[in-house]
Structure formats: C-alpha cells, structure tokens
Amino acid sequence: MGMDAPTNEKPEWPLWEVFIRGQHGMSHRHFGSLHAPNAEMAIKAARDVYTRRKEGVSIWVVPANEITASSPSDKGPLYEPAEDKVYRHPSFYKIPDDIGAM
C-alpha cells in the first residue's frame, strides 16, 4: 500500500495517560493510555478511542513519564498501618439520602 519502503528507524510516539470525566461523574477517572505525538493529538486520539459510546464529557491527558508512582515494594510501610484503624472509616453513622453526592 505504501509508495516508499518503510524506514528502519521508527521512533515511537510518547505515551499518554488518559483521564475522562463521565456524564454524571464528579471527577476524572483513569481510562487507559495511548500513543500520540503531542498533547493536542493525544486529546483527539482519546476522544476517538475512549469516548465512542458517550463515555465522557471532559478529557485530561498526562504524559506517562510525568507521573510519579509509589513503589510496590513500599506496600507494607505505606498501607498496612491503616488496616487496623477501622475508626478512620466514616461507616459509624448514616448519611441522609437528601445530602446528595459527597
């Protein structure tokens, strides 16, 4: 199909993480990731890849390499101390229905 032979050098487009806020959602949620040459094209690609079925009303894209993640090996010290502190959960009182989304 191509008129010229493809070149061997094929630098990949950078990876972008995609966050989408749904119709009734209060916040953007991580939806997936995609490759695009720049932020504008990443937004368009996200629109085409992730909002085909009316999933969203707002899109954020973030360069994947700009995300700093916690280290899986720190799991113990980071999260386990919360395990025996049930009193931190707001589950000891009832929220009235008419208060709406919190």
Binding site: M1, W13, L34, H35, A36, K44, A45, D48, V49, R52
Partner: peptide, 13 residues
Amino acid sequence: HAPALEEDIALAN
C-alpha cells in the same frame, strides 16, 4: 492497516 492503533480507530470513526 493504519500506521498506528490510534489512527486506525480515528479513521474507522
């Protein structure tokens, strides 16, 4: 057949 997955979906749309 598009050169990138993202372009493939965009063209199909």
